[in-house]
């Protein structure tokens, strides 16, 4: 990797540098790779012990069974069979997937024009201020924000009282709280910066002369956008989709607060299995199924967009 960047002429120089280091610091004159490993070891071990190992444990757990407090460690597919045959679990999994997809679509589609606006219309000196403005709400308490959406969307909420006050509607709208719509609105709000930032970064990377060239060669503004800007921005859009889609499927707070009985998602069931029903293996199986579902959809999405991602990284 390094050699290809520096070119052939630079290789002898690197050797000389290493020689000097070894001469001056015989004890510390390790190879670059071993220094890298030495440095990366603490965070890597941390992630290995507290992320990789627990994830492996939860997969193992999902093949066990639990009857109240006694844990049966014989490997079995019972949990999975139950999860896939019980319509309650199936419906929750499917609903979580549908809501996540809707949230992702809503978030990314509304975020794109904002990212485009900041990248193309805002003068360079004001760009970081705009980015800062967009990230501020994201850093305020997530719980409070979700709760406030409940206040806004409620039957006697801010939106309804304002709209009836202005005479736009006669009856308060009831389809916006305690259902999937409310979950989509709230999550689209919560994940907005996660969608805007990657798209913005991708748009910023686009060489503006390509757009001029396209216009000079006779393409219209719209066609230039579709044939030059959009394909070049796709890596950012793909990143935004994945960054929004993957975490939303496991969201617990939003469905619980604004979802009502028909807006609950799989995370609520996982929590119930773990903390209320004392059936950790079933919860683990549901968690594994949810992750498998997310991974499968993400991989298909990446595959469909593979031509835009070529030459990246």
């Amino acid at each position: 990797m390094i050699a290809s960047e520096t070119g052939s002429g630079a290789i002898p120089m690197i050797k000389i540098k290493i020689n000097i280091k070894i001469k001056a610091w015989p004890r510390l004159g390790r190879s670059e790779a071993s220094q890298g490993y030495f440095l990366v070891a603490p965070p890597f071990l941390y992630a290995l012990l507290l992320l990789a190992a627990p994830l492996a444990a939860i997969v193992l757990f999902s093949f066990w069974t639990q009857d109240y407090l006694t844990l049966d460690t014989t490997l079995t597919l019972k949990n999975y069979r139950e999860a896939l045959s019980d319509p309650l679990y199936g419906e929750l999994l499917l609903r979580s997937l549908v809501i996540s997809l809707a949230v992702t679509a809503a978030t990314v589609l509304t975020a794109f024009p904002i990212a485009y606006f900041i990248s193309f219309s805002v003068p360079p000196s004001r760009k970081s201020m705009w980015i800062f403005l967009i990230t501020i709400p994201f850093w305020s308490s997530y719980l409070m924000r979700v709760f406030l959406w409940k206040v806004i969307l409620g039957y006697n909420g801010v939106l309804n009282t304002t709209l009836t006050g202005l005479g736009i509607i006669d009856e308060p709208l009831s389809f916006i709280l305690y259902n999937a719509n409310a979950v989509v609105i709230t999550l689209a709000h919560a994940y907005a910066p996660f969608a805007i930032l990657p798209i913005y970064v991708a748009l910023e990377k686009i060489d503006r002369s390509l757009l001029e060239a396209s216009r000079d060669l006779g393409e219209s503004r719209v066609m230039t956008f579709l044939r030059v800007t959009l394909p070049l921005a796709m890596p950012g859009v793909v990143a935004a989709v994945l960054i929004v889609f993957i975490p939303t499927i496991g969201d617990y707070v939003t469905p619980r607060l604004v979802g009502g009985p028909n807006g609950l998602m799989i995370a609520n069931m996982i929590q119930t299995q773990f903390l209320k029903l004392n059936n950790a293996p079933m919860g683990a199986a549901l968690a594994v199924l949810a992750m498998a579902m997310v991974t499968a959809v993400s991989l298909v999405f990446l595959f469909l967009n593979r031509r835009y991602l070529k030459g990246q990284k």
């Binding site: 992630a47 990789a52 496991g250 969201d251 995370a267």
Partner: peptide, 22 residues
């Protein structure tokens, strides 16, 4: 580095329950 950055995209509930189990 991918493993270390993984929690950025992993649903928090997965991280939470897997740690809890262990």
């Amino acid at each position: 580095l991918g493993l270390i950055m993984l929690p950025l995209v992993l649903p928090e509930i997965i991280v939470a329950v897997s740690l809890l189990v262990v």
